[in-house]
Structure formats: structure tokens, C-alpha cells
């Protein structure tokens, strides 16, 4: 099967998973939730196959343009969802996170995103491309979990549920922050050093990664050392994910710099 067929299958299965998730939520059927997670897993399998086929046919890492990296980010979010689905102890994470996945996959499928695989410019021909982008986007997927948990926290009226969302957001940050630091900052610096001879150039994309990172450092310190929990923590987690999104999209379209290719 071709990559685009597999990708379309994944898209369809994700949409099905989304519908079943919401049905489970509104009908209060826990078993349906599990069926939705199973669908998500099937979608993930098709999506994985799509990424593998794309890598094989293009001969390079599947994140060198917006379409590819959106596809990988949504893949990573489904993975994060499946990792957290059980221990989150809430039926709400699944539907709302899946909503983000479906939105990202729809955006990737839209005609706005050119889909052809182009040969890599010399600067991108490096295994650091793999390490840098995949680990960063994986970290951002966990920030997406923290984001949804933060929103659910703010939207939820019940104190015991709030408690769970708060803990969930923290656990997601505890996974996402090290990954983002390693992928986005450390691997990014190593690669920049190899390709351009400088590990840090204050390029807007670099600075926005730093900003995202500082927001999550703020999240941890206000929480651990000053005991901020709940509402303020949730807000910082939300701002952090938005900063990550801006680093990823906004910088490319609104600010200019060295990272103009991806």
C-alpha cells in the first residue's frame, strides 16, 4: 500500500476512535472507552506503516517538511495517549487528546501542506535530524497531554477530578520536559554545532525553544518549591504547550531565521 493510502486509513480510524471516545464519555460506558483506545492503537499501527513506507520511499527521515512533521507529531500524541490512557484514571483525556490528533492529521492532509518528498538540502543530511526532531516532537506530545489535563482541570467542577488532572499534568511534564530538553535543546545544539559550527546562534527558533523550556522550568519550580498546584499550574502548562506550538508553527511562518526549512 502507498503511504497516502495508509495515512488516510489511519485518519479514518482516528476519527472513528474519536467518535467512540466521545460516545463513551457521554454514555458513561467504560468498555466503549477501551474500544476507542483499541481503535487508536489500530490507527497508530496504520500510521506507523505510513511513516515507514514514507521513510523507505523518500530515503530520509519522515520529518523534513510541515506535512511530515505534523504527521509525526500526531503519531507521537497517539503514542502518549496510549501510554497514559490507563493510569490517567479519567475518561476525559482520551476524547480531548484525540480531538487534537484529528485536528493535526486533518491539517496535515489539507491541500495547504505540500506532500511530495523532496531531496534533502545538505544541512539536513544527518542522523541528528532523526534524533533532534523525533525526540523534540515526542516531548511536545507529552506537553499536549499536560495541555489537555490543564484545560480539563480548569473546566472541571469536581475537586477529586481536578486533583487527578493536576497529577496527570505533572506526570506528563515529568516525561515531556526531559525529552524536550534532550531533543529540542541538547540534540539541537549538537547538530547546529556539526552543521553550522555554532551550538547556539540566538536564531528565533532556538530562542522559542528556550522560551518553551523556561515556561516548563517555571511550572516545575512554582509547583515543587512554592507549592503552586491546581489552577496556576494548569495555566502554566497550557501556556507551555502554546509556546511549544508557536516554536513549531509560528516561528516558521511569522519569524525568519536559519531554521526556515522545517
Amino acid at each position: 500500500m502507498t503511504e497516502s493510502t495508509l495515512f488516510t486509513i489511519a485518519f479514518a480510524v482516528y476519527v472513528a476512535s474519536l467518535l467512540v471516545y466521545f460516545a463513551a464519555l457521554f454514555a458513561r460506558r467504560e468498555r466503549w472507552s477501551r474500544a476507542a483506545a483499541l481503535l487508536a492503537l489500530l490507527g497508530l499501527a496504520a500510521h506507523t506503516a505510513a511513516l515507514v513506507v514514507r521513510t523507505a520511499t523518500s530515503g530520509h527521515a519522515p520529518f523534513t517538511n510541515m506535512y511530515e512533521s505534523l504527521s509525526f507529531l500526531s503519531w507521537a500524541i497517539v503514542l502518549a495517549l496510549l501510554i497514559f490512557a490507563r493510569s490517567a484514571r479519567t475518561p476525559r483525556l482520551g476524547p480531548y487528546l484525540m480531538l487534537i490528533v484529528v485536528a493535526l492529521v486533518a491539517l496535515a492532509s489539507s491541500p495547504l501542506m505540500p506532500k511530495e518528498a523532496t531531496p534533502l538540502v545538505p544541512a539536513l543530511q544527518s542522523y541528528w535530524l532523526w534524533l533532534h526532531v523525533s525526540v523534540t516532537l515526542l516531548g511536545e506530545a507529552f506537553f499536549a497531554v499536560a495541555f489537555v489535563a490543564g484545560i480539563l482541570y480548569l473546566a472541571s467542577p469536581a475537586p477529586d477530578r481536578k486533583e487527578r488532572f493536576d497529577a496527570l499534568a505533572y506526570r506528563a511534564v515529568a516525561v515531556g520536559f526531559p525529552l524536550f530538553t534532550l531533543g529540542g535543546l541538547v540534540f539541537g545544539m549538537i547538530w547546529a554545532y556539526r552543521a553550522w559550527g555554532r551550538y547556539w546562534a540566538w536564531d528565533p527558533k532556538e530562542v522559542w525553544s528556550l522560551i518553551t523550556w523556561l515556561v516548563f522550568a517555571l511550572y516545575l519550580h512554582t509547583r515543587i518549591v512554592m507549592g503552586w498546584k491546581g489552577k496556576r499550574s494548569a495555566l502554566i502548562a497550557i501556556v507551555g504547550f502554546l509556546a511549544a506550538l508557536f516554536t513549531y508553527f509560528g516561528v516558521n511562518y511569522l519569524l525568519s531565521g536559519l531554521h526556515s526549512y522545517a
Binding site: 540566538w202 528565533p204 530562542v207 528556550l210 522560551i211 523556561l214 517555571l218 512554582t222 516561528v251 525568519s256
Partner: peptide, 24 residues
């Protein structure tokens, strides 16, 4: 003081944002 750290993190964040809005 960790409060100082928090104030500094916020200031550095804001300053960094400004630096990406004004071309350098």
C-alpha cells in the same frame, strides 16, 4: 530565594520573546 528564580525566569522569558519580535 526561589522567588527570585521565578521572577528571573519570567523576566528572561519576556526579554527573549521581545528579542524574537524585533529582528536582531
Amino acid at each position: 530565594s526561589v522567588k527570585l528564580a521565578i521572577v528571573l525566569i519570567i523576566l528572561i522569558t519576556i526579554a527573549s520573546v521581545v528579542g524574537t519580535l524585533i529582528p536582531q
